[in-house]
Design a protein around this nucleic acid. Structure first.
Lengths: 207, 207
DNA sequence: TAGATTGTTAATCGATTAACAATC
DNA sequence: TAGATTGTTAATCGATTAACAATC
């Protein structure tokens, strides 16, 4: 299952989740696709189509129960289990991301920080001591690492990723400016800050 | 001009730019859409279509001159002028982004850092002293701020953005987990880390 | 029941790919 | 010139929107 759902739909799901979470905080119990459509600035039709990729979560004449829908989307997004995260490259960005992951209330758990710079060894970031990259193989024997964050210089990203794939890592959150080549079954989510900045820059021109 | 070009095309331009930059570093002088297609894993047809939204940069029987195409895409993306950047919210992420912007060789120039926390006042980040938010109005009189980076808690983002819009800021790079409502003519580029993480999480499930 | 709103099919719109004539 | 490869039109594919019957 879960097959054949377009990337466009998946990109929208976290946003639904965020809006439903806010409604929940505000004590809203039910919402129609029409109301949600107005708040989110998308068509009601799209909301109903998107949700119906995963199942019929609403009720005719009533709409959607906010708590129920929120929970269902959480399940769809895989937020019902804790994901163990290890981070590679404890520079400025790496430290910020480590802190960020730990501070978010999402079920992602920072369990290890790795770098190649001896000077960083043992430094505490977000409550965790930095380890050396060559200690990871050992670490990996006693810890299940679900996600590797790559906050490395671009030339280091690919070799490190390859090494981690060999050691069984199956998911990467990649901040390096490269397109990682990984085997089938390994997933990569990119955050390319420079490309985001360039898009902003483009939109500032003529338009 | 520049009108009517789809967001999908714009999203791909920075990636072309990156690949062309690498070719340039490797001393490659010319490339055909076919070769580039293979490297980038997109169709040659798409490359030609994308580029021809902006003009005919190639030559039949030859392909594209790498340096020329690189420069043209740079122009399209607005990378021929320096953009002054001010950042709001000097937390972990804010500091990392400040450092990031300064370290990138792209033409974005960090000129001010603002926070509301008195304890941060005067602290030097990326070579710039942190100022208090209420000093911005003054600062803005003597400096041209092209882009405001928002690395603030979500509840602070909207009020601060509104204030900045009133003071003439026309572009936002938004890291807060909110959809900013801004007047027409003001551009917003979002980096929603939590949504990126959730997409990764989704792709780790069934698929 | 009558009114509201979903789930779903059909229609439209836009983006991607294929094909090929133009041309270097 | 012959070969290569673009620019561009046409065909296909996919995603979004509209419409409405089903149903709570």
């Amino acid at each position: 299952m879960n097959k054949g759902i377009s990337k466009a739909v998946i990109r929208r799901m976290p946003r639904y989740y965020r809006y439903l979470g806010e409604l929940l905080e505000n004590g809203v119990e039910r919402i129609s696709s029409g109301e949600l459509s107005e708040r989110m600035q998308v068509t009601a039709s799209q909301i109903r189509q998107d949700l119906n990729n995963f199942g019929g979560f609403g009720q005719q004449g009533y709409g959607y129960n906010v708590q129920f829908l929120y929970d269902e989307i959480g399940k769809i997004l895989g937020l019902t289990e804790v994901h163990n995260v290890a981070l590679f490259g404890v520079g400025n960005l790496g430290q910020a991301i480590a802190n960020y992951v730990s501070s978010e209330k999402l079920p992602f758990h920072m369990i290890g920080l790795f770098d190649v710079d001896e000077k960083k060894k043992g430094r505490i970031v977000s409550g965790i001591p930095v380890m050396m990259l060559d200690e990871f193989e050992d670490f990996n024997r006693t810890h299940r690492v679900d996600i590797a964050v790559l906050t490395l210089p671009k030339d280091a990203a690919m070799p490190v990723a390859e090494h981690l794939v060999d050691l069984g890592v199956r998911a990467f959150w990649n901040f390096a400016h490269v397109d990682l080549k990984v085997p089938k079954g390994v997933v990569v989510e990119n955050v390319h800050l420079s490309e985001s900045l360039m898009q902003l820059s483009y939109n500032m021109t003529g338009r």
